[in-house]
Amino acid sequence: MTNDMTATKSSALHTSGQFSTFFVADLFFGVDVVHVQEVLRSQHMTSVPQAPDVIEGLINLRGQIVTAIDMRRRLLLPPPAGDHSASMNMVVRTADGAVSLLVDEIGDVLDMDASTYEPPPDNLAPAARDLIRGVYKLKDRLLLVLDEERTVDLAVGRAV
């Protein structure tokens, strides 16, 4: 993939601030709160036949039609063991309108300090590396900063 341009553009910024956190499988993610529109419980989903498999379906967000992306499939993670329909919607604002990210669980909003920030490790799995801006080293775990623009651009990271 030729994505160097976008990568440099977005990674320089947002090295500190508030992050909305969530879990996908055992990964702990954060999205800059500025880009989070709202968090919703499981919504009625209209599936889109023949759509790319990362698209779970469409939801009606107060009259606006929002595409929902399954984050597990987006990150090429295995499906959860139990009932999948309990996914939470993390609705993020992107340049192309609102998109819902289906995640396993919603965490707290955390304040991050730039001193704990590091670019993503080189040995990260390709599916994740393209979508992650960087890593905050917390005391007991790592917070992966999700690049929401690249996450909703399905052309990114799908060449594998």
């Binding site: 009625h44 023949q50 790319p52 698209i55 939801i59 039609i65 992306i69 309108g97 909703v152």
Partner: peptide
Amino acid sequence: GKQLKGLTLYAGATIMGDGRV
């Protein structure tokens, strides 16, 4: 949304009387 633009099967979406898409 942009993610579905490549699909020529659909012209768009609408919201039905029961609020579903």
